[in-house]
C-alpha cells in the first residue's frame, strides 16, 4: 500500500493537469479559504460584540455547542438534497464548523483584556470604537489567531468531504480510491491533507509570534 502510494507520487502524470496534485491542492485551499473567510465574517463581529459588551454570553455558549455537535457530512448531504449539487452545500458545512473556534477565540480574547486597561482607555477619553480597535483587538490578537488557527486546521481536514458530492480537493483521492479499492490512492489523499494541515499550522504559529510585538519585547 505504501509502495503504491510512493509509485503514485513518483508518476509525473499525476502532478499535471486538472486532476493533478497541484490542482487538487489548489482546490482544497480555495474551499478552505472561502469557508474560513465566510465564517470569520460572521463570527468576528459577533465575538467582538459579546466580548466588548458582555451581553449574549449564554447565546454564545449554546450556539457554539449546537454548531460543534452538527455532523458535517450530514449537513452537507441534507443541503445537497435540498439545493442540488454545487459548491454551496460543502461550503456551508465547512463554515458551520469554522464558526465556533473563531467565535470562541475572538470572544475570549476581547473579554479577557484586563478590565482596568479598558477602564483607563475609557477614562482618558476613548470612544467605544477606538477602545475596540486600539486596545481590545491588539491585546486579543494572540487568542484571535489561536481561534483562527484551530478553524483553519479543522476546515482543511474536513474539506475532503467536498469530494463526496463530486467536487474537487484532496478528498478526490480518498473517495476515488475507496470506490476503486485503490488504498494507495486513499493514502495519497490522507498524507497530502495531513501534510497541508501541519504546514499551515506551522506557518500560522510563526505569524502569531511575529504579530505580538509587546510579547516579544517582554521575552527579550
Amino acid at each position: 500500500m505504501i509502495n503504491e502510494m510512493l509509485a503514485y507520487f513518483a508518476q509525473g502524470a499525476n502532478w499535471a493537469g486538472e486532476s493533478g496534485i497541484p490542482a487538487r491542492l489548489g482546490e482544497h485551499l480555495w474551499y478552505s479559504f472561502l469557508a474560513v473567510a465566510a465564517a470569520a465574517v460572521v463570527a468576528f463581529p459577533v465575538g467582538v460584540f459579546i466580548g466588548h459588551t458582555g451581553t449574549g454570553r449564554v447565546f454564545l455558549v449554546s450556539a457554539s455547542n449546537v454548531l460543534r455537535a452538527l455532523p458535517s457530512l450530514g449537513i452537507m448531504t441534507l443541503l445537497v438534497l435540498l439545493m442540488g449539487i454545487g459548491l454551496l452545500p460543502p461550503l456551508a458545512a465547512l463554515v458551520l464548523i469554522a464558526i465556533p473556534p473563531i467565535l470562541a477565540g475572538v470572544y475570549a480574547g476581547v473579554a479577557n483584556v484586563d478590565p482596568e486597561v479598558v477602564d483607563a482607555a475609557r477614562a482618558i477619553g476613548m470612544k467605544d470604537s477606538r477602545i475596540i480597535l486600539q486596545v481590545e483587538l491588539p491585546l486579543a490578537l494572540p487568542l484571535i489567531l489561536g481561534g483562527l488557527r484551530g478553524a483553519i486546521l479543522q476546515v482543511v481536514a474536513t474539506a475532503t468531504i467536498a469530494a463526496y458530492v463530486n467536487l474537487g480537493g484532496l478528498g478526490r483521492y480518498i473517495f476515488d480510491g475507496l470506490a476503486l479499492y485503490d488504498y494507495g490512492q486513499v493514502l495519497v489523499g490522507a498524507v497530502l491533507v495531513t501534510g497541508l494541515a501541519l504546514v499551515l499550522d506551522g506557518l500560522l504559529g510563526l505569524a502569531a509570534r511575529a504579530l505580538s510585538p509587546a510579547r516579544r519585547a517582554i521575552a527579550n
Binding site: 484586563d114 482596568e116 486597561v117 477614562a123 482618558i124
Partner: peptide, 17 residues
C-alpha cells in the same frame, strides 16, 4: 469631557501593547 480631564489609576492602567 474626559479628554479635558487627566486620569491616574491605582495600577497605572497602561496599555501593555
Amino acid at each position: 469631557l474626559r479628554l479635558g480631564i487627566g486620569y491616574v489609576l491605582q495600577n497605572a492602567g497602561l496599555f501593555p501593547h
